[in-house]
């Protein structure tokens, strides 16, 4: 069987298109690459959606933690503390348990599938981590900027939207890039702990361990998985670098440089 044929059969296997049965004997490198790559679709799905939705929640949480109102501040602090303070592994377990209970009561039955349930956990998780990053950045917004905005008559929402939020993003961006990388790595835990795999439609790690289990040789599939993730990470770094440039485009050249050498706060 040619490699192209394998790609046609298994390229979209993880979303249920193509050959129903996974290969069982005579595993080729091509099959390894195709199926693990096919599983990567889910890692990207989880990562991209969680990142986008989580971004907005994170902004809200950061503002909440900075709020004057004690109730809002405490709620934001607790949200961040619980999701940052416990392993994702355990969060997945509790979420699955909770969604099962909801299903038995007849509510939101779709949540027990990884595609919906695990996505919610990942969104909340990244919202907490990014929220903390943005909170730190928000506190670092230069007082002068805010005072200048006041002087120009900005207040309330426009002041936040036009002045504080962009500066917050700019300052928090290097750390946020790291969070994005971690988030994509964390997506490998979805099917590994907690959520079940339906119809053998899993993520990259699921197929990698499928091959490791069939060939009894961990030295081929896991390095392939690593290879894919290095490419994914480089892509993220590139995209975030472009955005970073855009966020900093108004700054004079030497100040831009200075920004880049800020120590990276990871997570």
């Amino acid at each position: 069987m040619s490699c192209w044929q394998t790609v046609q059969d298994y390229g979209l296997r993880s979303i249920g298109i193509g050959e129903r049965l996974l290969p069982k004997t005579d595993f080729t490198l091509c099959q390894h690459f195709t199926l693990i790559g096919s599983g990567l679709i889910w890692n990207i799905y989880f990562g991209v959606l969680a990142l986008i939705i989580g971004f907005f929640i994170a902004s809200a949480v950061a503002v909440g933690k900075n709020a004057q109102n004690r109730a809002i501040r405490k709620a934001s602090e607790w949200f961040i503390f619980v999701f940052r303070g416990s392993p994702l592994f355990i969060q997945f377990f509790f979420a699955y348990f909770l969604f099962l209970k909801l299903k038995q009561l007849g509510y939101a039955t779709f949540l027990t599938s990884a595609q919906a349930g695990a996505l919610i956990v990942l969104i909340l998780n990244t919202a907490a981590y990014s929220g903390e990053i943005f909170y730190g950045a928000l506190r670092a917004v230069p007082r002068g900027d805010v005072e200048a905005a006041d002087a120009y008559g900005f207040s309330g929402w426009p002041r936040f939207r036009r002045i504080m939020w962009p500066t917050m993003l700019r300052l928090g961006w290097p750390a946020y890039t790291n969070e994005a990388i971690f988030l994509f790595h964390a997506t490998t835990l979805v099917f590994f702990s907690g959520f079940p795999t339906w119809k053998q439609q899993g993520d990259a790690l699921y197929y990698a361990s499928y091959f490791a289990d069939k060939t009894f040789n961990p030295f081929v599939p896991y390095p392939i998985l690593a290879f894919y993730f290095i490419i994914l990470t480089l892509t993220i770094v590139w995209i975030f670098g472009r955005i970073n440039k855009r966020l900093n485009r108004h700054l004079p050249e030497e100040r831009r440089k200075k920004l880049r050498i800020r120590p990276n706060l990871i997570r």
């Binding site: 790595h185 490998t188 961990p218 030295f219 290095i230 990470t233």
Partner: peptide, 19 residues
Amino acid sequence: IAVVRGVPDIAFFLFFVIA
């Protein structure tokens, strides 16, 4: 730095000990 940071830790743990 680049390679190890680019790979999910779990992928390392699954074959690194034997290696």
